[in-house]
Simulated scan of single mutants.
Amino acid sequence: MPPTRNESVPLRIVFAGTPEFSVPCLEACRASGVEVVAVYTQPDRPAGRGRKLTPSPVKQAALTAGIPVEQPETLKSPEARATLEAYRPDLMVVVAYGLILSRKVLAIPSRGCWNVHASLLPRWRGAAPIQRAILAGDTQTGVDLMQMEAGLDTGPVLLERRTPITRDDTGGSLHDRLSLLGADVLAEGLRRTLAGETLHATPQAEHGVVYAHKLEKTEARLDFSRAAIALERQVRAFDPWPVAEGDVAGENVRIWAAQAIDQHHNAAPGKVIAAQRDGIDIACGEGMLRITALQRAGGKRIAAADYLNARPELRSAR
């Protein structure tokens, strides 16, 4: 049963999140002085080679902290809403939860629902804002603390943090940085709210709306007829999932790291132009893609130099 209300606690929060990205935000809530009365997360899913049911990272963190965990398949039923209502939340904090919240659910907490979203809204609403920003060649991204409404990431923005996207950033490195920035902006929002401040809600601009559609494994295939810089972004965005793949002199490999080389050539797209210890240069529609880390079928990630040890014939490529 949900606990009875503790009137001495200034803010009762229900936290909703699922992946590793959400865990720092949960910890920020716990450290802020609020009472996290429950954690909502996705049901345990099969994972690993044995397909064993595995709790989400957020569930594991909640259990370690001794916080009650709820894992409904949906929040649409009257029973699920009744359970949430019984916790009597002042605020619901949602971070990559994975379920759509209806108007009825959004209305349950007395202060509504906050969402931590990994983009500078209204750009990259939706499921995969981190990877889409890299793919598009954006030079800047960030996290927004948003007051939720029924539309998909359409609510007004309360607070924002920005960060540059560098040529070294991958989907993984940017994910980790934005996860910490999200916890930082959430902590500020909670601190200011506990101090009695009402955060100013800024409506999102009507122009500049872009949707970050869910990643598909089919997007991982490199098309060397495209510009090398676009392929470099594809490699970076899809590290660590789904990992770019392409053909290197007749062998299909996963490509973990590569850089675009702005150099003119007359070779057909996909041809190996040069191969040396620092990388394998593949002709592209514009420029060359230098592959520096790759993975053969059934193997592990290796440097280009190690790959060339197994395929020494490529060293004579011209």
Rank of each mutant, 00 (worst) to 15 (best):
Q140Y: 00
Q140M: 02
G142C: 07
D144F: 00
D144H: 11
D144Y: 00
D144R: 03
D144S: 14
Q147N: 11
Q147E: 15
Q147I: 03
M148G: 01
M148D: 05
E149T: 07
A150G: 04
A150T: 15
A150W: 01
G151S: 11
L152G: 10
D153P: 14
D153I: 00
D153E: 12
T154L: 03
P156W: 00
V157K: 06
V157T: 08
V157E: 04
V157D: 04
V157Q: 10
L159N: 13
L159R: 14
E160T: 15
R161S: 03
R161Q: 12
R162P: 06
R162H: 06
T163M: 09
T163V: 10
P164C: 03
T166Q: 13
T166R: 13
T166G: 10
D168A: 04
D168T: 12
T170P: 09
T170E: 12
G171D: 09
G171K: 09
G171C: 10
G171F: 00
G172E: 14
G172Q: 12
S173H: 00
H175A: 03
H175S: 05
D176V: 08
R177H: 07
R177G: 03
R177E: 07
L178R: 11
L181Y: 01
D184R: 12
D184V: 08
V185E: 08
L186W: 01
L186K: 03
A187F: 01
E188W: 00
E188S: 03
G189Q: 04
R191M: 07
R191I: 03
R192Q: 14
R192F: 00
R192L: 08
T193D: 10
T193V: 01
T193Y: 01
L194G: 11
A195E: 13
A195D: 13
G196P: 15
E197H: 03
E197A: 02
T198H: 07
H200W: 07
H200F: 02
H200I: 11
A201H: 10
T202I: 12
T202N: 05
T202G: 01
P203G: 08
A205I: 03
A205W: 05
A205N: 15
H207R: 14
H207P: 11
G208S: 10
G208F: 01
G208N: 05
G208Y: 01
G208A: 01
V209N: 10
V209S: 04
V210Y: 11
Y211N: 15
Y211F: 05
A212I: 02
H213L: 13
K214Q: 13
